[in-house]
Design a protein around this nucleic acid. Structure first.
Lengths: 192, 192
DNA sequence: GATTCGATCCTAGCACCGCTAGACAATCAA
DNA sequence: TTGATTGTCTAGCGGTGCTAGGATCGAATC
């Protein structure tokens, strides 16, 4: 059975290569440049190989999104665990969120802008997505204020961050004042 | 010169037809279905005719975006002028904004998600876009609170609305609680 | 009224896209 | 060694945005 196992390992390894390469290509040249042909050439296999791992391009985007969600959750927890006081934590959280979006625009798009075929806010939502939301909830729930449901507050705060991230990157908002917008958001929304 | 003028009128009329048809098609079947072939067939001309009016698909999206911006500005002013008291006005504004986004998803995408080749937040920004932002600023500036720049406040509030609109439509947020999220946003952000 | 000539529009085609059928080669079991 | 199975590739389908070049048509001139 060891031969079979080796093959399975190799196959899993190639799948990771596909996802990593798609991500890399997307960050370098944008998702438009992530064509099945380009991707196949970069991994040095033919196009149909991609379809033996994923149903199509959509699923590849979804895989990148899941990878990104796990990273984002880790990044958020890293900064919030190092901050003490709810107010300081939330500020750090907001900055880390926007920082992640800015540093990984393609991954962020895969998560929240593109269609990766993933289900959000449901029971069958993939674990990494649930966990990323949980990372937000952990820090935002405690500053929701009396009578405001923690999840609802988290959703609203998240939406505001998402709006800042996307409008800024789409050049709809000038990037200079991002920090002041974050401060305003935290000042007004957070109840300490 | 009357012949020339008639031709110019017809040409302008055809241009409006292209934009209106693109918008209609986008709302019916999504922007992916707005291909130059589909569009050409619907207006009953050949593909190259499109390129005698617009540089390419991007510019057509841009034209739809401008049309949408003018409409949105009008819609926002319509509801805010009928509401008295800053607080009530802002609530009405927020609802009208999200309502516009929900009723005209393709137009909203053209304005804020897709690349229509338009410049935002600059001197050379097209007038309809400036005016749509102005419609927000008119109502939001007065509730920014002391020491907070009206434009900065408007940008932040807008970003929050944009986040709600896009995450909800992309099924990242459950649609049921939209109203409560808006209330929370207005409650916390607005200073009366 | 016939004829030129320029504007206008269409046919045909380019290089690319996502995706897949079917041929082929490599590997395994008997 | 043979036969079946698995894996991968080549080639191709119908689609995309966009454009070159020829046909057509109508206005202006003789």
């Amino acid at each position: 059975m060891s031969v079979r196992e080796r093959k399975e390992r190799e196959r899993a390894s190639r799948e990771r290569l596909i996802v990593a390469t798609a991500r890399e290509l997307a960050e370098q040249k944008g998702w438009d440049a992530v064509t099945t042909r380009q991707l196949a050439e970069r991994i040095e296999y033919s196009q149909p190989v991609l379809y033996s791992h994923f149903r199509g391009k959509r699923e590849i985007i979804g895989a990148v999104a899941l990878e990104g969600a796990a990273e984002m959750a880790a990044a958020l927890r890293a900064v919030t665990s190092a901050a003490d006081g709810p107010r300081v934590r939330v500020t750090a959280l907001a900055r880390a969120y926007l920082d992640f979006a800015e540093r990984n625009p393609a991954v962020y798009d895969a998560m929240f802008q593109l269609d990766g075929g993933l289900a959000f806010a449901r029971e069958d939502t993939p674990e990494p997505l649930k966990d990323a939301f949980a990372a937000l909830l952990e820090n935002l729930g405690e500053v929701a204020g009396d009578g405001v449901h923690p999840a609802l507050f988290t959703e609203t705060f998240w939406a505001a961050l998402h709006g800042l991230a996307t409008l800024t990157r789409a050049r709809r908002l000038p990037p200079e004042d991002t920090e002041r917008r974050v401060e305003l958001l935290v000042d007004r929304l957070v109840v300490v």
